[in-house]
């Protein structure tokens, strides 16, 4: 089980012939992900890592009925690629592409919502349900199956914390990066909803960072819903200055809005345990899960 992707996921790769697309297609195949086809307009008929390439998503739908797509298309063309996947009713779309203009993201996500399609990202490392399916660019060896759901705004910090969990014998049900942009598809609250319904998930880790108010709203949700599973959070950027983008387009404190302090306070008030250091996440979870 786990959320969104599993052993039954049949994925296409949009932008499969590019450097990133072909490299990560190989790694995903090595992990056991079912990649049924690739799409690059004008490159139909090619084969990449044994995967057949088509000119359009429509052709792959007719031939393979995929239910997911992972997108490596460069930013100027990414909007069209995502819209094409949505128009063809691909249920889950993972947008790895970085530097998508905000206007394009807003357009794409409005269409996705109307079409009941889940978009993860943009600017996401992707999603992994350990030993079942990986749609993303994360190093697979640090993940192991288990009962911790993990949702994060960061890439390498997720690897750091997941490796810590694995080291302590705490496997993961699904780990998903929501993306580092100001506006993203799947958010923390939606991920928590899915983890709530997932019987394999016994606890959830949230990895937040400065910028925006997603963590504060998530804390409200946890408190209001009396969320039934333990939640542990880590928030990066306690000492970030105001008005500067810290690597991610979305990691920016505006005036007094979006500080780590505000997020930590909201989580604490909602009964979410907040780890002071990345390594404390595993320790706090061990307390919750290993009586």
């Amino acid at each position: 089980m786990g959320i969104i992707i599993n052993a039954g996921t049949r994925a296409i790769v949009q932008g499969i012939t590019g450097k990133q697309g072909s490299y990560h297609t190989k790694l995903m195949l090595d992990y056991g992900t079912k990649i049924v086809a690739g799409v690059v307009p004008g490159k139909g008929g090619a084969v990449v890592n044994g995967v057949p390439v088509y000119d359009s998503v429509k052709e792959t739908v007719e031939a393979y009925s995929p239910n997911a797509s992972i997108i490596f298309v460069p930013a100027p063309f990414a909007q069209d690629a995502v819209l094409e996947a949505i128009a063809n009713k691909i249920k889950t779309i993972v947008v790895v592409t970085e530097h998508l203009p905000i206007k394009d993201t807003i357009n794409v996500l409005a269409y996705a919502r109307q079409s009941h399609v889940t978009v993860i990202g943009p600017n996401t490392p992707g999603i992994i349900t350990p030993r079942e399916c990986k749609l993303g660019i994360m190093p697979a060896n640090i993940f192991t199956p288990g009962s911790v759901g993990l949702v994060s705004r960061s890439g390498t910090l997720t690897y750091e914390i997941a490796a810590g969990l694995t080291g302590k014998g705490l496997g993961q049900s699904t780990c998903v990066g929501v993306g580092g942009d100001p506006i993203v598809g799947l958010n923390f609250i939606e991920a928590l909803e899915l983890f709530k319904e997932d019987s394999k998930t016994k606890a959830v880790v949230l990895i937040g960072e400065i910028g925006g108010n997603m963590e504060e709203l998530t804390a409200d949700y946890v408190a209001k819903e009396r969320y039934p599973k333990p939640v542990v959070a880590y928030v990066a950027g306690r000492f970030a200055p105001s008005g500067k983008r810290m690597g991610h387009a979305g990691a920016i404190i505006m005036g007094k809005q979006g500080t780590a302090q505000s997020k930590i306070e909201a989580f604490t008030n909602a009964g979410v345990q907040v780890a002071e250091k990345p390594s404390d996440v595993a320790a706090l979870l061990a307390e919750e899960l290993l009586p």
């Binding site: 390498t156 910090l157 990066a236 000492f239 810290m246 690597g247 990345p278």
Partner: peptide, 17 residues
């Protein structure tokens, strides 16, 4: 110097810690 926005922010936080 680090790789990944979240990891570098966490590194700054650790130094302060």
């Amino acid at each position: 110097v680090g790789n990944g926005a979240g990891l570098v922010m966490a590194t700054l936080d650790l130094l302060n810690f």
